[in-house]
Amino acid sequence: MMNKIIPVFFFAVLLSASCNKGKDTKQDVRFVSPANFPAPKYNFNSNPVTTAGFELGRKLFYETQLSRDNSTSCGSCHISFSAFTHHGHSVSHGIDNKLGTRNAPPVMNMAWSDEFMWDGGINQLDMLPIAPIENPVEMDLEFAIAVQKIKNNAAYPPLFKSAFGSSEITGPKLLQALSQFMNMLISANSKYDKWKRGENGITLSTDELEGLQLFQQKCSSCHSTDLFTDNKFHNNGIKNSFSTDSGRAHITQLPQDVGKFKTPSVRNLKYTPPYMHDGSFSTLAQVLEHYNSGIKNSATLDTLLNQNGVLGIPLSVQEQQKIIAFLNTLNDEGFIKDQRFAEQ
């Protein structure tokens, strides 16, 4: 008799535990900087993360009313299970199925950056959402009108009241709420992170460790720190000519910045193909072979990719495989499956 009851009892506990996981959304939300990350750049003094602010920001992130025809939200092209990118799209399509010009970057670890987009044109996380909302191929709505639409939506005043103490809806508050949500999109619980912080006795395999060593030798000049980006701009030899998209030079209008794009993090690559600013590679093998043999020369090519007249970074097939083994330790499944970040 007991033998039968015990398994049933355990099963029930297991069930209720897994149910609870789905309901964790009501836990208090607060920003905590992971131990292996540098100091965040966002000014939390003027906009601290609160549970109510985060929840309002999440609702706004998935709010299609922020687009001209109520079809497209931030979450349309920054999908949680693709680590907040547009999986499978070399460039994103937004409103009216119009195509953009660049690969949608992940919305991840935003608090550690102060220059956003591939060209770094945006200097403040708070100001970032205005760009996709107003972009004619993304959400195509004047920001002032977007704010007006939210004002006219009866669901929002109480949410603004709990988040900011007043039901008055303003552009700055709407942006602060979105920042609170985006600031919580922290990916720092991959196998690598746990190994790095010495958690749960996690170990890396020989291949993964050798891959890490190779990565540190050959890749970490740009993919630096545990954010795996220097947050700077480089021409990594994707093209010979950048006449259709000059990258960083579009912002600075300086000839030395032509063809430079912001270093993306190499976290969560499993969920974020295709790769590069134009989405031109669909596999990591293609990416690594590009650095080995595919670098295209131009006046602004990064000097690290042109040493003594030799283009690229020599990488044997074996080395490439080991680096890929290491990169796979940076996939953070907990991040993409975190129910707090999904549309409610």
Partner: peptide, 21 residues
């Protein structure tokens, strides 16, 4: 940060079409 963009600097208000996003 946006907390200091009030009045004529509010990109959703008076400054609506005077801001490069």
């Amino acid at each position: 940060d946006v907390a200091s963009r009030t009045g004529d600097l509010d990109p959703a208000g008076a400054g609506a079409d005077m801001y490069w996003s």
